[in-house]
Design a protein around this nucleic acid. Structure first.
Length: 673
RNA sequence: GCACCCGUAGCUCAAUUGGAUAGAGCAACGGACUUCGAAUCCGUAGGUUGCAGGUUCGACUCCUGCCGGGUGCGCCA
């Protein structure tokens, strides 16, 4: 019943232009005499769930009545008696067990529309108390090809940044890249032993990618050879246990029988898992041995894994040659990464990776030990957090630091150098425990005034509903996904333009631009429209869809409005200047107006909860309201000039809201498609 | 073994954080282009919200127990 503090903290506190907030303020005043914390009951004002009941509804009477031991409808009546909303609502009605239903007055709604017409921010007011927020997202390991698994964090994180920034906060987007890890040892080893100099000179990125894959493949090969016998043993053992259980004599005890069946199923799953591991190892081995070149390379580099780790260790120890190579590789790696971000239209204010924090790690650990936050256990320096069995290891037995250490150094930098008061981590839900430990440790360390939040999102699953794993053979590269989506979009663009009544309107360049916008938008929208907490089943069809609840639908609505203005030869700026009136003559006009008036409320909610899907849902409804309106109400051919002007204004507002909303999601619009 | 998450229409997902008759999109079926853009619109069909209890005016939502699936759990990030 109490509104979540966290939920409210990022909300705009200013109340005008946000209808929901305005109504809550009115209720808060009316409720003051009935309870001690009117704010939490005023929070129970919501948009109506069913439009037949009105536009908004207050559910506070029921729960407050229970608390006071009175009848809800009677209390509702008393609340309504004290409620002052006559300037914006029709007389409130009480229904059912005590719902207070509210319907906005048409003249008030028309006034809201007039305000929106003149407001560049479409009613969204900047936060009264802006925060300094660092958003940590995307964070790929450089030098490894990006795949679809990287998409979710990148796309959601970017949208969250845009939304919070628009809501008036000081946002710094930070790509905390993995640029100091073991992949560089592999690259260095590959460079020293397998380099194709000509290929490298032609394009460093491609050659580095090849070297990475090659070293990876050879180490996997030796690892598989080494592990195969134990895998076979484990498989045999699992089979034996399974078969023994299966052949146990039948029992009459039903409960026991059930337990046995259950464990049998689990054993079968284990057998299948080991079979899969063996098969994968066999495949890895076969891939190398069937290739003459690979086989001889494998033979000549038996210690490749160890040697690569040693190269990493040397790099970390400051070895001049390896450091020089690292510095040589980095620009190419970053450039490769950047081409993908450019295509996705994702920008970072900062790209501070692991290497940046590396010089501070020793000091961080020393500091933690000094303050007795960290202690040595089994040779490792650990922080123990109550409620967690596993320690938070900041220094390993071998003296190396972990990503926990880096994350702590990062927090210190963000607070002390960037003056951040809020930190958001847009990261896979599986790292939940890590962040709980990290945040607790940071608070103990003195950063207890910072609002840390793990903006977690569900795991990306494959077609088989199992976590999407990057099996070396068939990773879905990000580039090819983008390419495919654009190709499909292009086919639709061509087909549609070719069959336009008045003949094709677009040249090849325009078509390409549209296909790019639609193709990329579709992929982003597929990720954004889902509640970020739930797991995500990766599907080509979903990613590439261009009909129904997709970005394309909104882009199309936008283009249709632009089409009206183009066809009518109407200057949109002049239209707004002319101060025409908005009429709400028909239900579909009123529904569209109400929808447009709610933009600020939705942006505030999306910002408060860092949930882009709140916004996608709203935009879909808005485009839908527009389509219905467009179907029922002639715009250019409206019966009267006043009606024509009113409808043009509604269309113009719709286009602005859709464009702005999509922009907050990082999705572009085009005027003609 | 311990901990966390999930189970909603054939499929993919929502559900304003406890509200009224659980909603969309795909897919299926039936309609609407000589009429402002058919990438669209209108309609039909599809449900015991995994199961069983409990809490209360009211439960997809909270509690308990099952069933099924996933994830994490000391030196990877």
């Amino acid at each position: 019943m109490r509104p979540k503090a966290a939920l409210r903290s990022l909300c705009n506190q200013v109340l005008t232009m946000n209808i929901l907030n305005e109504l809550r303020t009115r209720f808060q005043a009316a409720l003051a005499g009935f309870c001690d914390d009117p704010a939490s009951f005023a929070w129970m004002v919501k948009p109506a769930q069913d439009t037949r009941f009105g536009d908004y509804q207050a559910n506070c009477a029921m729960s407050l009545a229970r608390q006071k031991g009175v009848k809800p409808p009677e209390l509702a009546k008393q609340i309504v008696d004290r409620l002052e909303v006559s300037d914006l609502c029709e007389a409130p009605t009480i229904a059912g067990p005590g719902f207070i239903n509210l319907r906005l007055r048409n003249d008030w709604l028309r006034g809201q529309m007039q305000q929106l017409i003149g407001d560049e921010r479409l009613g969204v007011l900047p936060a009264a108390q802006p925060r300094r927020i660092v958003v940590d997202y995307s964070s790929p390991n450089v030098a490894k090809p990006m795949h679809v698994g990287h998409l979710r964090s990148s796309v959601i994180g970017d949208a969250v940044c845009r939304i919070l920034r628009f809501a008036g906060h000081a946002v710094t987007s930070d790509n905390h890249i993995g640029d100091w890890g073991t992949q560089f040892g592999m690259l260095i080893y590959g460079y020293k032993h397998f380099l194709d100099r000509e290929a490298y000179d032609r394009g460093a990125v491609g050659e580095l990618a090849r070297l990475y894959r090659l070293v990876n493949q050879l180490s996997d090969y030796h690892d598989s050879i080494k592990r195969l016998p134990e895998l076979h043993d484990a498989l045999a053992a699992a089979r034996t246990t399974h078969d023994e259980t299966a052949t146990l004599p039948a029992v009459s005890d039903k409960a026991l029988d059930e337990t046995r069946k259950k464990s049998l199923r689990k054993l079968a799953v284990r057998v299948a898992e080991f079979e899969q591991l063996v098969a994968a190892a066999d495949q890895t081995i076969a891939a190398v041995e069937s290739d003459e070149t690979l086989r001889s390379l494998a033979g000549a580099h038996r210690q490749i894994a160890v040697a690569s780790r040693e190269e990493t260790a040397k790099l970390h120890a400051g070895d001049a040659a390896n450091l020089a190579l690292w510095q040589q590789f980095m620009p190419a790696c970053l450039a490769a990464m950047q081409t993908i971000y450019d295509r996705l239209n994702i920008k970072f204010d900062l790209v501070l990776g692991e290497s940046f924090y590396q010089p501070f790690l020793a000091e961080v650990v020393a500091n933690l030990e000094q303050q007795q936050i960290a202690t040595t256990s089994n040779g490792a320096v650990c922080v123990f957090i109550p409620g967690f069995e596993a320690p938070f290891i900041v220094k390993k037995t071998d003296g190396a630091y972990t990503y926990a250490t880096t994350d702590l150094a990062t927090i210190r930098y963000r607070v002390e150098t960037l003056s951040a008061d809020t930190m958001l981590y847009v990261v896979d839900a599986r790292q939940g425990d890590h962040f709980k430990l990290l945040f607790e440790t940071a608070r103990k360390w003195g950063y207890d005034g910072v609002d840390f939040r793990h903006i977690s999102f569900g795991t990306v699953l494959g077609d088989d509903n199992r976590p999407f794993k990057t099996r070396s053979g068939d990773t879905v590269g990000l580039e090819s996904l983008l390419d495919e989506s654009i190709v499909r979009a292009r086919a639709i663009v061509d087909a549609n333009d070719d069959r336009k009544a008045g003949g094709a309107e677009l040249d090849a360049g325009e078509r390409a631009k549209i296909a790019e916008t639609v193709g990329i938008g579709a992929i982003k929208y597929a990720d954004l429209c889902q509640n970020r907490e739930s797991d995500y089943v990766f599907s080509w069809d979903k990613m590439l869809a261009k009909t129904g609840d997709t970005a394309t639908y909104m882009q199309y609505a936008f283009a249709r409005v632009c089409g009206i203005f183009r066809k009518g030869g109407i200057d949109r700026a002049a239209l707004r200047q002319a101060r025409g009136e908005i009429e709400l003559a028909t239900p579909s006009e009123r529904a569209l107006a109400l929808q447009l008036a709610r933009f600020s409320e939705v942006v505030d909610q999306a910002a408060a909860e860092c949930r882009p899907n709140v916004l996608t849902h709203y935009l879909f409804e808005t485009a839908n309201s527009f389509s219905t309106f467009f179907e029922h109400c002639p715009v250019l051919k409206a019966e009267t000039d006043a009606s024509r002007t009113s409808r043009l204004l509604l269309a113009d507002l719709t286009a602005r809201v859709v464009k702005q909303g999509l922009e907050l999601l990082g999705i572009r619009t085009i005027e003609q498609m």
